[in-house]
């Protein structure tokens, strides 16, 4: 048995008695491996007695689950209405420039910090009141 199978097996065992266990399992797999790839989908499908198509359908529906791991650090930038009103579109270019190929800039819609945008998230850390300078620094330090 591969380590992948072992680890995913553990995750499935932890959640399988829940009502609707698939999303909690996918979250844990995504967290553990940085993605839910075809191999993982196969193991999960077998573990829950679902078809691979069913599992893939769910994985591909949600933005949080990635088909392949991306080793780059991620900066999630909110570009929803409230952050637009506070000027994210004027500084997103600076973030992208600072990111280059090294950092991944991901668009999210709303971090719930709508009166203090532009807002961004790195891991579980949140950042508010960003301007050209601070967003550049944030990306450089990511």
């Amino acid at each position: 048995m591969s380590t992948l199978e072992l680890k995913i097996g553990e995750i499935i065992a932890e959640h399988r008695t829940k009502e609707g266990p698939l999303l909690p399992i996918l979250h844990d797999v995504q967290h553990e491996f940085g993605c839910v790839d075809a191999e993982a989908e196969k193991i999960i499908a077998a573990g829950l007695n679902l078809s691979r198509a069913e599992v893939h359908g769910v994985v591909s529906f949600y933005h949080d689950f990635k088909p392949a791991a991306d080793p780059r650090p991620v900066v999630q930038v909110c570009r929803a209405e409230a952050c637009k009103a506070r000027g994210i579109e004027a500084i997103i270019g600076d973030a992208e420039k600072a990111a280059g190929e090294r950092v991944k800039i991901e668009t999210v819609y709303c971090l719930g910090l709508c009166s203090a945008g532009p807002a961004a998230r790195t891991g579980d850390d949140l950042h508010i009141r960003l301007d050209s300078q601070s967003i550049t620094r944030l990306v450089e330090e990511a």
């Binding site: 009502e19 609707g20 999303l23 949600y62 933005h63």
Partner: peptide, 21 residues
């Protein structure tokens, strides 16, 4: 239960489907 980044899951029936996995 934690959502997975789908805005539409704020709609109640979509939320229920998501909750069911």
């Amino acid at each position: 239960r934690v959502g997975a980044g789908a805005y539409v899951c704020g709609e109640e029936t979509s939320l229920l489907n998501s909750l069911e996995g």
